[in-house]
Design a protein around this nucleic acid. Structure first.
Lengths: 165, 165
DNA sequence: TAGCAGATGATAATTATTATCAATGACGGA
DNA sequence: TCCGTCATTGATAATAATTATCATCTGCTA
């Protein structure tokens, strides 16, 4: 059986404090303004151990910051992802794509042009194969999305590291 | 190096014909009406080897079927996924979720309530570790989404197999 | 501390998807 | 083969999430 570990919502307390301090330092380094709104959005994100949608973050930030705009929350979350302070748990293509191939398979997605190709990689499936459950979860299967740059996009892309990592 | 294989757009010609015949048979078995629209949508999906969005499918279907409604295309694609004739290449939660945890990790998502938990599974990453490219793709990393049922949802869910597989 | 580039708030616009509902047509039974 | 029923369709309105716009404001460097 392979090593897989569920992580509890560990984004609380000290961790949040440390990350917030790091964030300020990183902003200074990157010449990115440290505004109260940005701090508040990141704090709200770190304090909610789950994976909130923008509107949940908005609701939480408003408790301390009643004047913040929803647009700012959206913008800030995107910004945080760009600079590597957060991750967006969504596929690279925002809108639904459909696939007529019903055999089990995974996908490679170009992070730039969002082109999707099918990928056969039975290894991925075998990793969970022996396992029925994980903590309180009853496992059904898994989908792997391999992030990549296609040939064409690679030629045109300068280094903008964290957003793709 | 592990066995991973890119699949070309193999959804053409004979394959489409066979799948279409199967589809009709499956509909009969499941008492689901076989309408020209449904046939056309599935054919369009099979004929486009890529992973089209609903609007692309709509555009293609309209060439033969100028009166079809966009709503029907959306409905039909969803329906096809429900009965296992197609797959939706999108996370289970439609709207963006954000994650303040910047360590590399994956996710478990409950297919019913869409709850997301972090998952540490280095094994997944090692599978691609030795590999720089895959066909014309330059690899960057991968995200695994493990589909599961959380404890609470499991208790309330009757068997509706294909949509979750 | 002044000035400016970048950030914000308010709001409009856009985009994808779903809901509504009357009209239609697929399909099992006569 | 025809008929009645009920799922499906088309047209359109509604919803929901996100992005664009733009005037105003504010961190930050000099």
């Amino acid at each position: 059986m392979t090593e897989v570990k569920l992580l509890g919502g560990q984004g609380r307390g000290d961790y949040a404090q440390a990350r917030l301090a790091e964030f300020v330092a990183n902003c200074r380094r990157k010449k990115m303004a440290v505004t109260p709104q940005r701090r508040a959005v990141l704090r709200a994100l770190l304090e909610s151990g789950d994976h909130p949608r923008a509107d949940r973050v908005y609701a939480r930030v408003r408790r301390e910051h009643p004047h913040i705009s929803l647009a700012t929350v959206h913008r800030t979350l995107e910004r945080l992802c760009e600079v590597g302070e957060a991750r967006k748990v969504t596929p690279l293509h925002e809108t639904a794509r459909y696939d007529g191939n019903t055999r089990p398979h995974h996908h490679v997605v170009c992070v730039r042009c969002k082109r999707v190709e099918d990928l056969e990689a039975p290894e991925f499936d075998t990793l969970l194969a022996g396992r029925q459950t994980l903590g309180e979860f009853h496992l059904l299967g898994c989908s792997v999305e391999v992030r990549a740059l296609c040939h064409r996009c690679r030629k045109r892309t300068a280094g903008r590291s964290p957003s793709a990592a």
